[in-house]
C-alpha cells in the first residue's frame, strides 16, 4: 500500500482524526436524527401536517369521491325522472280533453289517471264519440263495478294506451288512443271556414236550412234524436244555419251532415254524425217521396 501525503503517519494520528469532534458530532447527530424519528415519528407528523395544510388545494379523486359523485349523479337522474313524471301527471290531471291527454305524454312516459279524471274527460265528449272509445255500459261496469283499481296511461309513438288495471296490476281493458284519431274526433267538433258547396261529397245533397228542418220535424219523434246525435254541438255555434248537406257515403252506420253557419260575414261548416237509417228516412222526405 502506498502512503499518501495526507495520510497520518502514526496510529495516534489516525485515532485523533477518526474520533475528532466533528466526526463524533456528525455521528451522534445522525444517530440521534434516525433514533428520534423512530421514537417521535416527527417526520410522519411533519409530512402529515403539511398534507393537511394543503388538503383543500388537492383534487377530489379516488374511490370515495367517485362514490360521492355517483351518488350525486344518481340523485340528479332520479330527480329528473320524478320531475318529468310530476310534470306529466300535472298535465294529464289538467287536460281538458283526450287530445290534451295524448299531447301530454311522450313515448314511454306514464302516469296513473284517477277514475274521476277519466270520467270527466269521457263525459266531455259527445256521447257518440265517447261510444267510439268505449261503450258507456262497459265503462259503467269498469268504473263503478269495483273491478278497476286505477287507470294507467302510457305514451306510445302515435298516441297513448289507457290500461284499466285491477288491484293486482292486471290489465282488464286496454284502450289505444291514436293521436290522429283523437285529432280527427276533436276537429269534428270544430267548424271549418268555407261553404258546403266547396265540399265535393255534399254535391247534389245540399238543402236550405228551412227545408231541412221542416223535413226533419216531419219525422217521428223517436227518429229525430238519431238524426241529431250531438245537438249540443250545433247549439254551441254562433250565427245562423244557412244550409245543410248530406255526405255521399256512410261510415260505420253513420253519415256526416254538414251545417253551414253564417256569422259576421263568414261562412263556416260544422260536420256532425247522424245514424244512417235516420238520414235515409229524412232523405225520402227531402226528395218528396214521403209527405
Amino acid at each position: 500500500m502506498i502512503q499518501k501525503w495526507y495520510d497520518p503517519f502514526t496510529a495516534g494520528e489516525w485515532a485523533k482524526r477518526t474520533f475528532s469532534f466533528f466526526n463524533l458530532g456528525l455521528l451522534i447527530f445522525t444517530v440521534a436524527f434516525g433514533a428520534s424519528e423512530f421514537r417521535f415519528d416527527w417526520c410522519e407528523k411533519l409530512v402529515g401536517t403539511y398534507l393537511l395544510a394543503t388538503n383543500d388545494l388537492r383534487p377530489e379523486t379516488g374511490a370515495l369521491w367517485e362514490t360521492g359523485r355517483q351518488t350525486s349523479n344518481a340523485h340528479k337522474s332520479l330527480n329528473r325522472i320524478i320531475t318529468q313524471r310530476e310534470d306529466s301527471r300535472r298535465s294529464v290531471r289538467n287536460a281538458d280533453s283526450f287530445y290534451h291527454l295524448v299531447e301530454s305524454l311522450g313515448l314511454g312516459e306514464w302516469v296513473t289517471l284517477e277514475k274521476e279524471n277519466f270520467k270527466r274527460l269521457y263525459l266531455s265528449l259527445a256521447p257518440r264519440i265517447g261510444r267510439q272509445l268505449i261503450e258507456p255500459s262497459h265503462l259503467v261496469w269498469l268504473l263503478n263495478g269495483n273491478i278497476t283499481d286505477r287507470i294507467f296511461c302510457e305514451g306510445m309513438t302515435d298516441g297513448v294506451s289507457l290500461y284499466f288495471i285491477d288491484s293486482r296490476n292486471r290489465v282488464i281493458r286496454q284502450i289505444d288512443l291514436k293521436k290522429n284519431t283523437i285529432g280527427e274526433i276533436q276537429s269534428r267538433n270544430a267548424p271549418v271556414s268555407g261553404s258546403l258547396t266547396e265540399i265535393e261529397a255534399f254535391s247534389g245533397r245540399i238543402y236550405p236550412a228551412e227545408k231541412f228542418f221542416e223535413a226533419m220535424l216531419k219525422l217521428p219523434v223517436e227518429i229525430i234524436p238519431e238524426l241529431m246525435v250531438d245537438p249540443e254541438l250545433l247549439l254551441k255555434q254562433e250565427g245562423t244555419i244557412q244550409s245543410v248537406g248530406i255526405w255521399n257515403e256512410a261510415d260505420g252506420g253513420y253519415i256526416k251532415l254538414g251545417f253551414e253557419f253564417f256569422h259576421r260575414g263568414e261562412n263556416r261548416v260544422l260536420l256532425i254524425q247522424a245514424r244512417e237509417w235516420a238520414v235515409w228516412q229524412l232523405s225520402l222526405i227531402l226528395k218528396g217521396d214521403v209527405q
Partner: peptide
C-alpha cells in the same frame, strides 16, 4: 387504500397510500 385507491400493486400506489395515511393520522 379502501377509501381512495385501486387494488393495483405498485410502489406509486403504496407511496401515495402512505402519505394519505399520514394525513389521516394528522387530522
Amino acid at each position: 387504500k379502501n377509501l381512495f385507491f385501486s387494488f393495483e400493486q405498485s410502489w406509486q400506489r403504496k407511496f401515495k397510500e402512505m402519505l394519505v395515511a399520514l394525513q389521516i393520522e394528522a387530522a
